[in-house]
């Protein structure tokens, strides 16, 4: 039972990460620095939202098969949970995405750096997850890894290009590193549900990923002539978010909240 709940939380965490970052990226659609890149980032947004849907569908399946331990849970209104009720009817404290994902887009430099940090994390994460014991998560990871491999390539090149481009682009990238790097430690700090599942081989053990991720970031930053950042801010995985998430959800969930119970 506890394992079941942890698996649900873990799956929601994976889904929330993908949805929130995909949503942020989609804010660029129509406003990119050049048409070709507008299209490129929209592709990444679509990949991430696609991943989120697969995870939410799996979470919904798990939830619907589990008698709710907590009868007051918002997910227990007597009707079946769906990918959309999970995305649109939970409040910020129920969301388990990392803080990095919910940060505002800022300029193109901040957006590509956020993508690079996160894609590098997803790259190693999914690489392990596809070997995991949960067959559904493994299958989703295998499919998503192909997408993420490209995201990592695309975002690495942009970080290098802007870091080693002009004086202005370099300064903007350094500023972005200053804003975002303190949010990266959380990626590798396991939440309670990750710890309990990792022991059973159902979740990826994050600690060994960290050095691989750091190595990758170091290599790319070296080519980009960027220095690393410092500091540490965590909490997203446990539902303690920055102020940004509330606004994102208010916008995203508006129709479902204003006209409850409708088909769209």
């Amino acid at each position: 039972m506890q394992t079941r709940q942890a698996l649900i939380d873990y799956t929601l965490h994976l889904a929330d990460n993908a949805l929130i970052l995909g949503h942020r990226n989609s804010e660029w659609t129509g406003h990119g620095p050049i048409l070709e890149q507008d299209i490129a980032l929209s592709n990444i947004a679509l990949d991430l939202i696609g991943q989120a849907r697969l995870f939410y569908q799996y979470a919904a399946l798990l939830i619907n098969k589990t008698p709710a331990a907590d009868p007051t849970s918002p997910l227990n209104h007597g009707t079946a949970v769906t990918e959309d009720s999970l995305a649109y009817l939970r409040d910020a404290w129920d969301f388990k995405n990392c803080l990095l994902c919910e940060q505002t887009n800022g300029d193109w430099g901040k957006t590509v750096l956020r993508q690079f940090y996160f894609s590098a994390y997803q790259f190693y994460l999914y690489g392990e997850m596809q070997k995991g014991k949960d067959a559904t998560l493994a299958a989703i990871a295998e499919k998503a890894l192909k997408e993420v491999t490209y995201h990592l390539r695309w975002s690495s090149e942009w970080v290098i290009r802007l870091g080693d481009g002009t004086a202005e682009s370099h300064a903007r990238m350094e500023k972005a590193v200053g804003e975002l790097s303190r949010l990266t430690a959380e990626l590798f700090l396991p939440a309670q549900y990750e710890r309990s599942l990792a022991e059973a081989g159902l979740a990826v053990d994050l600690l060994p990923l960290r050095s691989r991720w750091e190595q990758r970031v170091r290599e790319v930053f070296e080519m980009a002539t960027l220095s690393g950042g410092a500091g540490m801010l965590t909490g997203g995985k446990e539902g303690r978010h920055t102020e940004h998430l509330g606004y994102l959800l208010a916008e995203m969930q508006f129709l479902q909240r204003a006209y409850p119970g409708c088909e769209w």
Partner: peptide, 20 residues
């Protein structure tokens, strides 16, 4: 056709634009 700063980017742009 499309615009890109270098060959690497041109290939990626082509992937994103013409093979969706």
């Amino acid at each position: 056709s499309l615009h890109a700063a270098d060959a690497k980017m041109a290939i990626e742009n082509a992937r994103d634009v013409y093979t969706r």
